[in-house]
Design a protein around this nucleic acid. Structure first.
Ligand SMILES: Nc1ccn([C@H]2C[C@H](O)[C@@H](COP(=O)(O)OP(=O)(O)OP(=O)(O)O)O2)c(=O)n1
Ligand SMILES: [Mn+2]
Length: 745
DNA sequence: CGGGGAATGT
DNA sequence: ACATTCC
């Protein structure tokens, strides 16, 4: 293995990540402003800005064409353009809705979707492109980096590893995605296609708005060299760029050339490596599918609040908004965090555990007593962070729910406590409601502290994630039209997914289990019953009651004593049932056609662009060698050397010359767009947007509650980031948060 | 006249 | 609980 590695070492340095992946980055055009235009078409041809308090956070392209800039003060913007129409965007709810819709559309292409803020998504479509291994290179859709300078499209693949065609296919998929987003939501966006996240993101804004750009690997050197500030590299923020500036590093070129030992005086080893890599366009960070939000919060900056009555009114308003958000989300929050900012001071927060019984009826049925209980908690907590006996002056109030019950977690805290029932409630079980209402008898099972999950090695976990994703839900409307699906293999994969929108999810099984007990559920045809059920509201499923209403006796895990279980209050039983993990076996539908019919094609010509690529690689070699002198063995090299054992050589100087399949346009009229939300609230039940209201209200109440518990704003994929770090902070050197964005695994 | 919000690391 | 970073 070592010998094998040594043999490939040079080649590896030449092609650090082989540009084997295909990544799409999408970025919505002037997001908030465009949402407002979609909601009110009268604004379409007028200059529109969206403000939050006195700041205009963004404006549409009409306004920009007239000279208005993002992030202007409202006063300045209006002075500059009196006809500017300003809309208040302080409540992000509509933007969250469109954001979730768009992420869900991306998820219909691949489960590997990573959100960044509300208006950006990364998609790793490597698998999809791979299953589509033929392309006609003349068919690139949209722009490619360099076409501004009228660089010609190459007449053949200068790299010959196949990346050329992957980018072309990626441009088709990006186009398909953008079209789907537009037809479904009316929203336009830009897209970038590259072989890593950095490049995809860098080029996505190259042609704006409503355009897309791909970058070929041999243009990377030009692209990075064209960046005049290191701040243009995502992940290098103001703090990092200030430090770099002190070292005399301003441009990306500076960063390429700076002695890495200079960087080492300011950054830890990992960060140095990543910085250097980024400067050459190397970025091995994987697309991390998002879990559902780990926190939901609302806040409001105010001119001045100085009386308790004002505080109460403001928190009530915030709570009202937050409860709607949580209702749409469907999960029960485990903690409440309240925050306040004193004038001339910084933000202070206090976080406290929340008794689940606050939401005993679920998060979708909120009555006044629930609200007042929460208000009591909020205000009593507020008193602890603000000296209310003295005069006070506040400029911001906020509340947030966090630590949602995570049904997909291997063992939730409450279930763990139940299993170790020798070790029941103790002093740290005191909860918010206990303190607030002096009602300590009710619930002793709610954990005050949630222990971290067991340590999977991060590598293997990452590996697991990527094994879970193949094809399946991916690109259905793009690729299922091809005849590829007839040659699919079927692979059994043990899945820990717990995702209602994902076929085979255990929550779905649980739901189906309930249905099986009480209802007859008949799926009309085909496979994706989960998707149909809550997806488009177009399912023809039929439901019919059974004649008897026999009680449901759920299957309990083996380590749970059923007598003890039955002795528990019903509320607790329900909590426990939700917490028991069910592992399902999924059938993944994978086209494993990895045989690339290749015609050998030697590269004889070498354009100027290719030469610049070589120059770039030479610099990379230098910097890699520098790094290696003081490093044992970089993690990514170890991983790659392992990967090499079972995959093709990194660069095989061969090209697939078969013709590209046609990608036809069959856009199934798409799921509920964001427009029909206001019709889905009856009484005090707020229906999640992905649940068909008519079907929902035809169901028995218990089943309704099940659905409410399971529904989601957008599909959850993977558990949140874990703490895999680290004890080797030798010196007093910065381990910048940059690492979060540069992290490979 | 410095929004509103989420993730991550210490 | 706070500090940074991103949008
Ligand atoms: N500091 C920031 C940056 C952005 N946003 C919000 C407003 C934007 O509408 C949205 C997306 O940010 P972008 O940077 O992508 O800006 P736009 O989408 O508005 O414009 P563009 O067309 O340039 O992408 O996020 C924000 O609230 N605060
Ligand atoms: Mn945008």
């Amino acid at each position: 293995m070592d010998a094998n590695f040594d043999h490939l070492d040079g080649e590896w340095n030449l092609l650090p990540d082989q540009h084997k992946r295909t990544i799409i980055h999408i970025d919505i055009d002037c997001f908030y402003a465009q949402v407002e235009m979609v909601r009110n078409p009268e604004l379409r041809d007028k200059p529109v800005g969206v403000k939050q308090k006195d700041l205009m956070v963004t404006c549409n392209y009409k306004a920009r064409s007239l000279g208005v800039k993002k992030s202007m003060w409202v006063r300045d913007a209006l002075k500059f353009l009196p006809s500017l129409i300003l809309i208040d965007g302080s409540d992000l709810s509509p933007y969250r809705q469109y954001s979730a819709d768009i992420t869900n559309l991306a998820l219909s292409f691949t489960p590997l979707v990573e959100r960044l803020g509300l208006d950006e998504n990364f998609l790793d479509i490597t698998n999809q492109v791979h299953d589509y291994s033929a392309a006609n290179h003349k068919d690139l859709v949209g722009h490619f980096y360099g076409d501004r300078e009228r660089n010609p499209m190459p007449s053949f693949d200068p790299c010959a590893c196949g990346c050329f065609k992957r980018m072309v296919i990626g441009s088709h998929i990006a186009s398909k995605l953008r079209k789907k987003i537009f037809e479904s939501t009316g929203i336009t966006c830009c897209a970038g296609v590259g072989h890593n996240k950095l490049l995809a993101k860098l080029v996505s804004g190259y042609h704006k708005p409503n355009e897309q750009t791909a970058i070929f690997p041999w243009q990377v050197y030009d692209l990075l060299n064209s960046l005049e500030s290191v701040r243009m590299i995502p992940g290098i923020g103001s703090a990092t760029s200030k430090i770099l500036g002190d070292l005399g590093v301003t441009s990306v070129k500076d960063l390429q050339l700076v002695d890495i030992n200079m960087l080492r005086t300011k950054f830890d080893e990992e960060t140095c490596k990543k910085l250097k890599d980024m400067s050459f366009g190397i970025d091995e960070a994987v697309v991390r599918p998002n879990s559902r939000p780990q926190s939901l919060g609302v806040e409001d900056a105010v001119k001045r609040i100085s009386t308790m009555n004002e505080v109460k009114v403001k928190y009530e308003e915030l709570l009202e908004r937050l409860l709607k958000l949580v209702a749409e989300d469907g999960r029960k929050p485990g903690t409440l965090k309240i925050s306040a900012r004193k004038r001339y001071g910084h933000r202070e927060t206090k976080q406290l555990p929340l008794l689940l019984s606050v939401f005993s009826k679920g998060v979708n049925i909120i009555n006044d007593s629930v609200k007042s209980a929460l208000m009591d908690i909020i205000l009593s907590t507020f008193h602890k962070i603000i000296e209310t006996s003295k005069p006070f002056e506040l400029t911001l109030l906020g509340i947030a729910f966090t630590k949602f019950t995570d049904y997909s977690s291997e063992t939730t805290s409450i279930s763990r406590f139940f299993q170790k029932r020798s070790r029941v409630a103790d002093e740290n079980m005191e909860t918010a409601l206990d303190k607030s209402q002096k009602n300590s008898s009710a619930n002793k099972f709610l954990p005050a502290v949630k222990k971290p999950r067991h340590d999977l090695s991060f590598d293997s976990e990452r590996c697991l994630e990527n094994n879970l994703i193949p094809v399946e839900s991916a690109c259905s409307d793009v690729f299922l039209e091809t005849d590829k699906c007839e040659e699919n293999n079927f692979i059994q994969v043990e899945s820990t997914f717990n995702n209602t929108l994902s076929p085979g999810a255990s929550n779905l099984e649980k739901l189906n289990s309930v249905i099986d007990k009480e209802m007859t559920y008949r799926e009309p045809s085909g496979s994706a019953s989960a998707l149909d059920f809550q997806g488009n509201g177009k399912n023809n499923c039929t439901y019919s009651r059974l004649t008897e209403d026999s009680e449901i006796m759920p299957d309990l895990p083996n380590d749970v004593d059923s007598d003890v279980f039955n002795s528990l209050p019903k509320v607790i039983q329900e909590e426990l049932l939700l917490s028991f993990k069910t592992t399902s076996t999924r059938t993944l539908n994978s086209t494993s056609n990895r045989n690339i019919a290749t015609n050998q094609k030697t590269i004889l010509e070498c354009s100027a662009k290719v030469r610049s690529c070589v120059e770039s690689f030479e610099n990379q070699i230098r910097h890699d060698q520098n790094v290696k002198t003081t490093e044992k063995l970089p993690k990514h090299l170890r991983n790659k050397s392992h990967g090499l054992d079972e995959s093709q050589p990194s660069c095989s100087y061969s090209v697939d010359s078969s013709e590209m399949n046609n990608i036809t346009d069959h856009l199934t009229s798409c799921s509920s767009s964001s427009s029909d939300k206001h019709t889905r609230s009856r009484g005090n039940i707020i229906l999640p947007k992905d649940v068909d209201a008519d079907v929902f209200y035809a169901l028995p109440e218990e089943l309704q509650n099940e659905i409410l518990k399971e529904s989601k704003t957008y599909q959850p994929i993977i558990s949140p980031q874990k703490n895999q770090k680290s004890c080797n902070n030798k010196k007093g050197i910065q381990s910048s948060p940059l690492l979060k964005y540069l992290k490979k695994l």
